[in-house]
Simulated scan of single mutants.
Amino acid sequence: MMSFDKLDASDLVGIVLAGGKSRRLGKDKAQVVFDGQDLLSRAVEQLKRMVSEVWVVGRNAQDHGLEVPWMLDESPGMGPVGGILTALKKINRPLLVISCDLPFLDDVSLQRLIAARNKRHPDTLMTTWLQDDTGYIEALVSIYEPGAAVLMEEALASGLHKLSVIMAPEVRHHIRYCVQDAKPFFNLNYPADLQIMQELEKVNEPL
């Protein structure tokens, strides 16, 4: 088993992306309750276990009872890339980024991400999870280096918003995984996802 006792996350800042409108879900993702806690609070607390500084991006964290710094997107409507770029420009440090709609994201997955980032090539601008079966990357469970801001600014100026295209393979460091191991990255997009979450939550309940 991999040991995470000596992980170096001293230069990382945690970012919870919470600026989405949740139109497809029909309710505010951040306020969905899982395992007795709303998802935004859960994400903030999870990052606090990894790093010493955590921000919420996209909304006022204090409106949710959270005593953490927050910022709004400089350019709303650009999707996650807008929030990440805003944070990179404001903080100018490597960012451990997660979205606020990941009920099954576990600490080990984040620890593995940090450990992989510590072994990346110096020119790498993104450390992320890559699904072997599909080539899909988990752009919202990733670490972004400050240099990624230049690529994002250029992309937004040309109308490109998709992180998997903006952050091309040559600037990424990957952790590979199989589709059967994708549970930590399950996110809420549609009402049916809420039902799936609730059913999986029941499966995990202690007897």
Rank of each mutant, 00 (worst) to 15 (best):
M2F: 03
L7A: 08
L7D: 07
A9C: 08
S10Q: 13
D11F: 12
L12S: 03
L12F: 02
V13D: 04
V16G: 00
V16K: 01
R23M: 09
G26C: 08
D28G: 00
K29M: 04
A30E: 00
Q31R: 15
Q37E: 14
D38A: 02
L39K: 10
R42Y: 10
A43E: 06
V54P: 05
R59I: 03
N60Q: 11
Q62Y: 06
Q62A: 14
Q62R: 14
H64F: 15
V68N: 06
V68H: 05
W70D: 14
D73E: 11
P76N: 07
M78V: 02
G79V: 02
V81H: 06
G82A: 10
I84Q: 03
I84Y: 03
K89C: 08
V97T: 10
I98V: 14
D101R: 00
L105G: 06
L105D: 00
D107Q: 12
D107P: 00
S109A: 15
Q111L: 05
R112W: 08
I114N: 12
R117N: 15
N118H: 02
K119T: 12
T124A: 15
T124N: 10
M126Y: 04
L130V: 01
Q131R: 12
Q131E: 15
D132W: 10
D133L: 03
G135M: 08
L140N: 11
L140F: 05
V141D: 05
Y144V: 12
E145G: 07
A148F: 12
L151D: 08
E154M: 06
E154L: 06
A157S: 13
S158P: 01
G159I: 08
G159K: 08
L163Y: 05
I166E: 09
M167Q: 11
V171I: 14
H174R: 11
D181H: 09
D181P: 01
P184H: 03
P184K: 01
D193S: 07
Q195L: 13
Q195T: 15
I196H: 10
M197D: 00
M197P: 01
Q198H: 14
L200M: 15
L200F: 13
E201L: 02
L207F: 12
L207C: 09
